[in-house]
Design a protein around this nucleic acid. Structure first.
Lengths: 147, 147
DNA sequence: TCCTTATTGACATTGATTCTCATTATCACT
DNA sequence: AGTGATAATGAGAATCAATGTCAATAAGGA
């Protein structure tokens, strides 16, 4: 991993190691503050700036995905190496609950690849990633609808 | 339109009319500030708060889509009534350029409907909308890569 | 071990969005 | 058309995520 960091002209430091380690173990879509707070228990020294800088670095390295879900703060999730972990999001517009789903990924992937190829050629883009999300109202919010 | 506003327990006011009118005529993915500035020429009285509040209202009414593209500000686009306008986004992660594309919408729609149905049942969600976006590097940024 | 310099953490700053509240304007009802 | 209840507005303050500043620190090659 140290080598991977080198590629990005970076030193391997204790804070970076701690943040990467934490991300690789934690659940998905955490905000920077959540990461900072969780990390603070074991590593009280790590500051907010370093959390942001390191998440940005990890995103550039392709180890982490930055999500903008419209709730005023970005979220980050560790990108597992194996494809089996690939998923998209189902988001409740009322309470912000985020559900990962992985149905139809085979079919989706076919369409995505096809679209990518076409878009890359037509718009002369290098396509690096894609996001698919469904927005709606979750079970809980449906229940408390008429209050 | 006045009736539509009524449904959302709202009065039809001059600022709301101006903002809606502006949105329906303008290009896509504008930031709140851009909307405020453009509007300011003809309607100097309209404040920033009202722009935000009205965009939020229009979004709840389903007339406008709120986009979170990760650049620190939300963007808004008018949702045309006819389906022919349906599109998704191709976003440059370097410079933020946003391209609308509408390739493969028929195939996409099939997949999306299928996925929606499955997700709605499995997670007991009411699915109201979806977003698909591709991220990458645009033509211009590719060119100025090695500077 | 030493030296260069990338990295850090505390703090200040920015900038988008939301909140507050006195004032204004809409519209249902006369 | 006039009136009154109150929804909506606008100016400015407040909030809060994210970024910038900079002196102190630490990584890692020599």
């Amino acid at each position: 991993m140290k080598d991977k960091f080198k590629e990005y002209a970076s030193r391997m430091t204790a804070p970076r190691e701690a943040i990467l380690e934490f991300m690789s173990r934690s659940s998905t879509h955490l905000s920077a503050k959540e990461i900072y707070t969780s990390l603070h228990k074991k590593h009280p020294g790590i500051g907010m700036s370093t959390v942001y800088r390191t998440l940005d670095l990890l995103a550039r390295m392709g180890l982490v995905t930055k999500l903008a879900l419209g709730d005023g703060q970005n979220r980050y999730e560790f990108k597992a190496k194996d494809k089996s972990d690939h998923h998209h999001h189902l988001i409740c517009t009322r309470c912000g609950t985020i559900i990962n789903y992985s149905e139809f990924l085979e079919e989706e992937l076919t369409l995505v690849r096809k679209t990518e190829k076409k878009l890359a050629k037509k718009y002369n883009f290098i396509i690096e990633d894609h996001n698919i999300e469904f927005l709606g109202i979750c079970e809980k919010c449906k229940g408390s609808e008429k209050i």
